[in-house]
Amino acid sequence: MSETSPKSFQEIILRLQTYWAAKGCAVLQPYDMEVGAGTFHPATTLRSLGSRPWAAAYVQPSRRPTDGRYGENPNRLQHYYQYQVLIKPSPPNLQELYLGSLEAIGIDMEMHDIRFVEDDWESPTLGAWGLGWEVWCDGMEVSQFTYFQQVGGHDCHPVSGELTYGLERLAMYVLGIDHVMDMPFNDPQTPIPLKYGDIFFQTEQEYARWNFDTANTEVLLRHFEEAEAECRTILDQEAVDPKTGKRIIMAHPAYDQCIKASHIFNLLDARGVISVTERQSYIGRVRTLAKLCADAFVQTEAGGWTAQEAGA
């Protein structure tokens, strides 16, 4: 059963949303912070921890300052979209579900060559790794497919299955577009048709200039230190809130600071002020925060903690 071809970038996103909603995922909204990839959304990082089942899908705007090319490169952007699906425990038919999503956006399985090619995933900043594949469609990588083994230094039990679609690249392929800026964002037949470039070309230029040359590195360095300190301070608080008398571990606010530190590190990297040796140490500092946040999250109810078990 092959679907009709989508006409625009947004139609592809909408079809993915509809598809995964129909498969039982909670369709979440993007996280309201700057992140380098959809994995950083707490709906993936934190929710892949602990024993409670989870199924979520969402679009996540992602920023990679070093990838900025002033909107000139047909495939590279410093701001782009990922589509992320996380299901815990990983269902036995996750590969079939995934292939169904490709059909949903108009890829005809009878005409294309889909392959699962070994690609193990590791995020040194999140202290996370998993095994899986990059999925190829006619030789092009269209998704990452990963079974999480460890996140924030914790073994994943049960294991989550994670799917990440690079939306621009996938959409360009489905729509037959050669330069990302030429891709129709909405339906080209509408009274006000907008292309990807109408929306993002100027911002790519603006951010590339800021990322590479203007961002105040002293301020960024200070922000990094502050985020790091704040993250630790938050996690150092007593589990029981003195005001309400309730057990409230602030894993998410602390994790926000970890996300912040990670993004600031990326900006500093783009500004070229981090040497090779320092690089490792910055990554290590962010990883330490991610681990502390993971430690805290598994002490919360969403992370599988129960008063009963804790009392036993």
Binding site: P89, S90, L131, G132, Y147, V159, G161
Partner: peptide, 13 residues
């Protein structure tokens, strides 16, 4: 690797 809620390890599920 492990997968779903199993403890068995295999190269992929």
């Amino acid at each position: 690797m492990r997968w779903a809620d199993k403890t068995l390890r295999w190269v992929r599920p």
